[in-house]
Design a protein around this nucleic acid. Structure first.
Lengths: 209, 209
DNA sequence: ATCAATGGGGACCATATAGTCCATTCAGTG
DNA sequence: CACTGAATGGACTATATGGTCCCCATTGAT
């Protein structure tokens, strides 16, 4: 049988096959970021990954599934990165470093493409409910990393007891996402800097020292 | 000649023709909002507007032009509305009313589709530079309305002299757009409320009374 | 009524795109 | 080496989609 009943997990997979699958996913990850999900065709992915049609359908039942795996992979990648940036957050300076890292990364492209997660959210939220759910969950986890750091700050007495970590985290995430969007549209990261700085200023108002 | 040299302005246009053009644009405006720009086909527009292919190409040279007119029309519509909501802004309570109006409107759909301008910005920014420029300009004008109101508040002594109206306006817009995105993704307007409230809290910190 | 110009209906075309299928090659195991 | 299942190449199909074209209808002016 050329097309496995279940093009997903299950049956055996040689290292060679696994490498092909990884190449396809990596190409799609990149293309869907820079061109957008809907504007990326399977042929684009095929060409960029140096694979053939049959290889694609050997590993993915259809395009929708590829999209969902791309969403999941991107979410995992970003959460991994953010975990590294936030798991030891415990001071306002740490929050500033977090801000700087995001701004610098986005400055490299002058804001182009926006947030890898946010742009997919905007494109898929009203089109693929499963993808939307994954994205929503990812934002929750991302905010959770921020909230955990803010909670540590509060518990350490850095932030006042009436600071609400979850609320602040949501506000920071909104400022970040809004900043990404304005920067992408303006081709200028200034709005992103302003948005984040304003959110940080708000956090600062809860500092005890 | 069936297709006018210049499918845009120029040659005569009867009321009948104008009505057809308006119907096409209105249908595209709606469809591109709920389905997204790229996911809206000319056939969708044709069906929704009860027109034929030749009618479309009588009034628009191609799809790209339609998209640009949709962007311009939406921007004009939103700026018109926001002008009404902001031109007399001169108190913090006015800002709260502005927030409430946006949240309520978005709550009707539980956040679905997001901001009509923001979602197009995300989709078109890296795809159609002319559309991107129009959208960027529209955001600037929208922020300008906010900034003008904030400046009135500062000049009236409602806000402290060190409040920066432009900065605050950009921060408010980012919070709004980020809030839209998170609400759209979560299918819950709560994040939008939190984002806007946090931005308003920041403005509040500049109140003199 | 006639005529010219605008508006309209819809068949038609070229291409892009998702998806199918099968013959062939490759790699591991007896 | 022979065999087997996975991996691959790539032709092929069906359909969607943007865009063209031709002819007919409507309308307003003379």
């Amino acid at each position: 049988m050329s097309t496995p009943e279940n093009a997903q997990p299950g049956q055996r997979l040689t290292p060679r096959g696994a490498a092909t699958r990884a190449r396809i996913l990596a190409a799609a990850l990149e293309l869907m970021y820079v061109k957008g999900v809907n504007a990326t065709t399977l042929d684009d992915v095929r060409a960029a990954s140096n694979t053939s049609k049959s290889q694609f359908y050997n590993h993915f039942p259809d395009k929708e599934r590829l999209v969902r795996e791309v969403v999941a992979a991107r979410a995992a990648q970003i959460l991994e990165r953010e975990r590294g940036n936030l798991e030891r957050l415990k001071s306002f300076r740490g929050l500033v470093r977090w801000r700087d890292a995001l701004v610098q990364r986005n400055a490299l492209r002058n804001g182009a493409y926006g947030c890898a997660l946010g742009s997919m959210a905007s494109e898929l939220a009203d089109q693929d409910d499963q993808a939307r759910a994954t994205l929503a969950q990812s934002f929750v986890e991302w905010e959770g990393l921020l909230a955990a750091g803010l909670r540590r700050m509060r518990d350490d007495g850095v932030l006042s007891p009436d600071a609400d970590p979850e609320r602040l985290a949501t506000g920071l995430m909104a400022a970040l996402q809004g900043g990404y969007l304005l920067a992408e549209t303006a081709h200028d990261i200034k709005p992103m800097e302003i948005a984040l700085d304003m959110a940080l200023d708000h956090v600062k108002s809860f500092l005890t020292t």
